[in-house]
Design a protein around this nucleic acid. Sequence first.
DNA 1: CTTCTGAATAACAACGTTGTTATTATTGTA
DNA 2: TACAATAATAACAACGTTGTTATTCAGAAG
Lengths: 328, 328
Amino acid sequence: MGVTIKDIAKSAGVSYSTVSKALRDSPLVKEPTKTRIIEIAKQLGYQPNVAARSLVSKKSNTIGVVWPTIERVTHSALITGLNKQLEQLSYTTLISINEMEFAINTFNRYQVDAIVAFDDRNSKEPANSTVPIVTYGIAHDQSPFPTVDVNRRQAIRSAVQYFMSIGHKRICYVGDLLQEDRLQEEKVNGFKQAVKSFGLDPYYSRVVSVSDLEQYDGYEATKKLLKDREPPTAVISGSHDLSKGILRAVYESDLSIPHDISIISYDNIPATENFEVPLSTVGVPLQLITEKLAEVLMDVINGEETEKRIFLEPELKITESCQPINGG
Amino acid sequence: MGVTIKDIAKSAGVSYSTVSKALRDSPLVKEPTKTRIIEIAKQLGYQPNVAARSLVSKKSNTIGVVWPTIERVTHSALITGLNKQLEQLSYTTLISINEMEFAINTFNRYQVDAIVAFDDRNSKEPANSTVPIVTYGIAHDQSPFPTVDVNRRQAIRSAVQYFMSIGHKRICYVGDLLQEDRLQEEKVNGFKQAVKSFGLDPYYSRVVSVSDLEQYDGYEATKKLLKDREPPTAVISGSHDLSKGILRAVYESDLSIPHDISIISYDNIPATENFEVPLSTVGVPLQLITEKLAEVLMDVINGEETEKRIFLEPELKITESCQPINGG
DNA sequence: CTTCTGAATAACAACGTTGTTATTATTGTA
DNA sequence: TACAATAATAACAACGTTGTTATTCAGAAG
């Protein structure tokens, strides 16, 4: 069925070891022979057998991604980016949506070179794994593997701080998820902490809950929020999708941005799509995250020492969606 | 690094071939020896090396899923279900989000036993693959691989037919996507065809476009729709999420379901979550799809002949969200 | 007390590849 | 012309596993 180097060898009239070298572009094979062999391989539609190759070389050039929460969209953009990043390093990405322990066992059997695990709320400590693991998500101290994480707490804090610096006193955060979600919790905590340490009045500067992170949830929450006697002058949104809904609700209430309300959105996407007003954002650009992840992966593969907790610092990108409180 | 059967053999004082047999539960090994070996294997944390195993057995017990459009949520529930289904057949699922041809090459190198490819609008004919392929999506005739598909056209047609049978004359379909998406097109075509062949007035029974399939899009479209002088008495929704928005918009307009408007939603989920009124649906239950996919996969793996085009017929589930036009 | 039978285990080849070592062909030099 | 030295290719072992074949050993039968 599958065409092997032996088939090519026979067809080219050389030994199979020569074929192997030719295909790996070894200098030990004469140039004309090499090109002839490569040509034949292409003609026969040869695909190297990973099993055989990784059996002898103990390398598979593959990264396994453990992603049990496929249904939550959160990480899909990140995984897409990581996939691209790794492709450039000539690694192939395989994804398992099974439960963490099972997935890790699978990848161990497959001898992938490293594993990326997305932190799940109910993930047990990944069992004994021969393959090195890198986790992404909330860095908890007990984890024995290097973790790459975004400093979400700091992100929201920066946003609050910025709003205060331009005179805002009533700053709300939209995006508290009722269900347990550590990533969201971090942001909420960042906000509460900031309110406290900056001495804002918690009556006006409060957290608004939503049932999910989609556009409609932001819309709904903001509608309610704007009915307050004294609505906020600045809003921080917990996600890009929420922001879309927030904007919609603001416009429907015949208010304008930034004149009546300033807004900053937590976001990983660098340039936000064409809204009426370009949206200010705070967060770590996706590419920075994937680059760091790829870097750490290469480190653990090459057995190099890595920092155990890597916190990526968010960037604040201010556009016309923010304005000083007494500037209009 | 990895512990092999030879390590176990040494530790148990037997030959490695005996270990292999013991772990595969062969009757050629005496019971006490067997249990002793298994015990040692467990202690050492042995994980069989897939590379070696699939090299000799030419089987990997793995199914590859090609899913380049990870960012579109459409198929995530389906893949989750398929994963479960295959797990029960003791197959492992691996996913690649790379472009079709690349992904198929990868899976060929990995010698997966079969590949499931989700039809992508711009998928070229999958190149020469040693591994059998099953596609899911719109069945186009030129494809040389078995295809499993849902008869979306028929689904929408059934809904129209049902509405007519209970007296509705003004029936709208919400869910035309502006971007090219063959799955959506099928539904729209089913609607248009039904309107024509059933002799409905295309002025009142029309297609409403949305920019995406999310809740807010349904909300927005319906808001506009209800402003018509003569809005429809029945609405067919193109997706579950759209339906949520449609319901919301109807209620906000102080209309009631089914008194003022009847609604049927295209959906793959059998029992729809707790809305105010349980939602009527038409579609093929997810489980039926995954079962069929798994079945076809097993067939192609075992080299059995399969039907080339498998169309799953949708089911209509009517609840209180529908009512005869002159019944209230 | 041999010889046979069958159970239990050991030894070995094979899977497709890579890296190392051995062999042959080619060239340059005395 | 003979002999290194080197280039090009061939042969071979190894990776960890499975399935087949060979060996050992106990007990049964003669």
